[in-house]
Design a binder for these strands. Structure first.
Length: 582
DNA sequence: GCCGTTTTCGGCCCGACTGTTTTCAGTCG
């Protein structure tokens, strides 16, 4: 039973309690606990094994929830959850996912109309039975019918890499409007989350009409969902490309908020979120007898801070907190201790240590890759083509690999301003052996060990395979660790705690693969690796020279993990980097 | 259900917008 599953049980219980009309703060307690658990770097199982009393030291976990965690760990389930699941049909919980419909309305539909499935809900709406209920009307019926259509899409998120250029472009367009003063992207895009659900935009203007009209009439806008004095929500036409692995197009929605100039900082702080972060900032305001909202920080009617984020945080006795860290994980503790990290920048990266050439599945030659890396200012690179098991990519056996390295050695003679290492992306086979013999690996400057096949093997076997690689003295780094893709296709089931401990013990580095759909090391795990002192390497896995440009997405992920220049190995000079190798 | 320089009770962030209302509850972020 891992942390994610326990967190999920608490989330499910929160949904069900909400439907039961439980105290809203009790529901929130479960959701808070779930979030705390998700953000934990240590597993609950090992905490309990160590000392169960430590559970109650976790944020938002008291006596009751600590007992529930222990019960889940020992019995594999949560009794209250099983009881409520038996009582309330799963489709009733699914109804909560319909936008505009919440727990109160779902409970009414369930209790008064005995609607127990999505099918019954559809029929009831079509027959006009829902609008007869008190508190419901024709419009609600319409919302339900439309919502049912979109239920498949609900909760679908888009890659940051797809969303960000789009939102940035809209921001630029809004900036050109006469009446608009400042514009900033906000929400999860500003926080650089790896995937985003909807888009948030903030503008300042004395009169919001022009900005709102512009967005409402934008060629990519499908329809306006809501429009008020200061806030407008629109749905865009389905964009391509989109994030779903099966190629579904998704419609994005954007909130545009327009506030007066003098409120820009407070509004940006509010609109950037996260919601959990804001709950804390507002509580901190309250403790100081102040009130924080999107218009400013007020003492009674007196504005204390509003124009910039910096002054809002300062008035709360906090340093400015980078948006990437605003998740109410550890940023407030860090801020109080003056330990907000100086986050990694793209320009800090000096080398890229994972790339392919025409020798296997790359589209550029060795020379072209070296030239491309030089153009981007890299001081060192490793050419790491595939090993033979990856037949699809024309993987290299020992003989071809040695010839390939010989060629690299010849070519690198011509470059004095960039170091080029002879590397290999060596597969860890299903039987927990490596795809190339030790004597070949020993000749390499740089060895990446990766899983490509047998990702569905049980956790024990996957973990054993990774341990084999870590224990091989020639392996320097574990490459895209889990094969994880964002979206529907799950990665391998890995015992991260064991792997990280072994990597720390053996001096093996971990890769943060910068490909936007394959950010293998998520921010929580990257933070954990940092805590354990394991060097992280951010690579692009470039298959062409254009592939080098993916580096920023890995850096964004690293920033969310709170990583600094010091935590990332390939910010070092070539000489320092080589020294770090075991 | 959690939490405590208002610590074992009584709080728990705050405002915009919509739909169904006649002053507000529900939902959302």
């Amino acid at each position: 039973m891992n942390n994610a599953k326990i967190a999920d049980q608490f989330d499910q219980l929160a949904d069900l309690l909400e439907l039961e009309g439980a105290n809203a703060f009790r529901v929130r307690a479960y959701r808070n606990a779930s979030r705390t658990i998700e953000g934990l770097s240590e597993s609950l199982a090992s905490i309990v094994e160590d000392d169960p009393a430590q559970l109650q030291e976790l944020q938002g976990i008291g006596k009751d929830l600590a007992e529930k965690i222990e019960a889940i760990l020992s019995t594999g389930e949560l009794r209250q959850l099983e009881e409520l699941k038996a009582k309330i049909p799963a489709d009733v919980v699914r109804m909560l996912r319909i936008p505009g419909i919440g727990p109160k309305k779902v409970a009414t539909l369930y209790h008064d109309l005995k609607i127990t499935s999505l099918e019954l809900l559809k029929h009831a709406a079509e027959e006009g039975k829902i609008s007869e209920l008190k508190g419901f009307g024709k419009k609600t019926e319409q919302i339900i019918l439309e919502g049912l259509e979109q239920l498949e899409q609900a909760g679908v998120r888009m890659y940051l890499a797809d969303a960000k250029p789009f939102v940035d472009a809209i921001a630029d367009q809004l900036r050109k409007l006469k009446s608009v003063d400042q514009v900033s992207v906000a929400g999860s895009v500003r926080r650089l989350k790896e995937t985003v659900g909807d888009l948030d935009m903030l503008a300042t203007a004395d009169d919001p009409t022009e900005a709102m009209d512009y967005l409402a009439n934008h060629p990519l806008t499908e329809n306006v969902i809501a429009r008020g004095e200061t806030k407008q929500r629109v749905r865009f036409q389905p964009l391509s490309p989109c994030m779903t692995p099966d190629g579904n197009r998704i419609s994005l929605e954007m909130d545009l908020r327009v506030v007066p100039k003098e409120s820009f900082g407070a509004a940006l702080q509010y609109f950037t979120g996260s919601k959990e972060h804001n709950i804390v900032t507002r509580r901190l305001a309250k403790e100081r007898d102040l009130k924080l909202n999107e218009y400013g920080l007020f003492h009674g009617e007196d504005p204390k801070a509003a124009a910039t984020e910096e002054e809002v945080y300062e008035a709360l006795d906090l340093p400015w907190i980078p948006p990437e860290l605003r998740e109410n994980r550890r940023e407030f503790i860090a801020a109080e201790n003056g330990r907000i990290p100086d986050l990694l920048e793209v320009s800090d990266i000096r080398g890229d240590l994972h790339m392919h050439t025409t020798a296997t599945d790359g589209t550029a030659t060795i020379e072209q890759m070296i030239e491309g890396a030089r153009e981007r200012g890299h001081k060192y690179i490793a050419i790491t083509d595939h090993s033979k098991r990856v037949t699809m990519a024309n993987g290299l056996d020992a003989d071809r690999l040695r010839a390939h390295w010989e060629e690299i050695r010849k070519i690198r003679e011509h470059y004095s301003d960039i170091e080029v290492y002879c590397g290999i992306e060596c597969d860890i086979l299903e039987d927990a052996t490596l795809d190339l013999p030790d004597d070949v690996l020993a000749e390499a400057d740089w060895v990446i060990a990766v899983l490509h096949y047998g990702l569905k093997q049980p956790r024990e076997q996957i973990t054993k395979r990774l341990l084999t690689a870590i224990e091989n003295p020639h392996v320097h780094m574990l490459g895209h660790l889990s094969g994880r893709l964002i979206g529907k296709r799950p990665g391998a089931d890995v015992d991260y705690e064991t792997i990280f401990q072994a990597a720390a013990d053996h001096g093996v580095m971990l890769e943060l693969n910068a490909h936007p759909s394959r950010l293998d090391l998520d921010d929580i795990r990257a933070a954990q690796a940092k805590e354990m002192g394991i060097p992280i390497v951010i690579n692009t896995d470039a298959h062409s020279t254009a592939g080098f440009d993916l580096m920023q997405w890995g850096v964004y992920q690293a920033r969310r993990a709170g990583l600094t220049k010091k935590d990332v190995a390939n910010t070092r000079t070539a000489k320092q980097f080589l020294k770090m190798l075991r």
